Amino acid sequence: MSKIPAEHFVNQIAHNVNNEQLSDAEFRTFIRNTLDIVIFEDTRIPQNEDSREQLKSSLTN
C-alpha cells in the first residue's frame, strides 16, 4: 500500500470533518484505517506500530 504525506491526510480530514454523509463513527473509522499509511515528519507523532495501535485504540467508538 502506498504511503501518504501527513499534509495530504490533514487535507482529507479538513474536507470530511463537516461531511454530513459520514457519521462520527464512520469518520473515526476513516481516521483509524488511514493512520497506518501516513508519513509523519514530526518526531512527536508515533512512527512505530505499537504507538500507532495505541493512538488508533484511543479513537474507538
Score class of each variant (00 low, 15 high):
Met1Val: 08
Met1Asp: 03
Met1His: 05
Ser2Val: 10
Ser2His: 05
Lys3Thr: 12
Lys3Asn: 05
Lys3Cys: 04
Ile4Asn: 02
Pro5Gln: 08
Glu7His: 06
Glu7Asp: 13
Phe9Pro: 00
Phe9Ser: 04
Asn11Met: 02
Ala14Glu: 13
Ala14Tyr: 02
Ala14Asp: 12
His15Asp: 06
Asn16Pro: 03
Asn16Arg: 15
Val17Asp: 03
Val17Tyr: 07
Asn18Ala: 09
Asn18Leu: 10
Asn19Ala: 11
Gln21Met: 08
Gln21Ser: 15
Ser23Asn: 06
Ser23Arg: 02
Ser23His: 04
Ser23Trp: 08
Asp24Cys: 07
Ala25Lys: 15
Ala25Val: 13
Glu26Val: 02
Glu26Ser: 12
Phe27Gln: 11
Arg28Thr: 00
Arg28Phe: 05
Thr29Phe: 07
Thr29Met: 06
Phe30Lys: 10
Phe30Ser: 03
Arg32Trp: 01
Asn33Phe: 03
Asn33Gly: 08
Asn33Thr: 11
Thr34Ala: 10
Leu35Arg: 02
Leu35Pro: 00
Leu35Thr: 00
Ile37Thr: 03
Ile39Ala: 08
Ile39Val: 14
Phe40Lys: 05
Phe40Trp: 11
Glu41Phe: 04
Asp42Arg: 06
Thr43His: 04
Ile45Asp: 03
Ile45Pro: 00
Ile45Leu: 09
Ile45Arg: 10
Pro46Phe: 11
Pro46Leu: 03
Gln47Glu: 06
Asn48Glu: 11
Asn48Ile: 01
Glu49Pro: 07
Glu49Thr: 06
Glu49Asn: 15
Asp50Lys: 05
Asp50Thr: 14
Ser51Pro: 01
Ser51Asp: 14
Ser51Glu: 14
Arg52Pro: 00
Glu53Val: 07
Gln54Ser: 06
Lys56Leu: 03
Ser58Gly: 14
Ser58Phe: 13
Leu59Ala: 02
Leu59Tyr: 10
Leu59Arg: 02
Thr60Gln: 12
Thr60Lys: 10
Thr60Cys: 02
Thr60Ile: 05
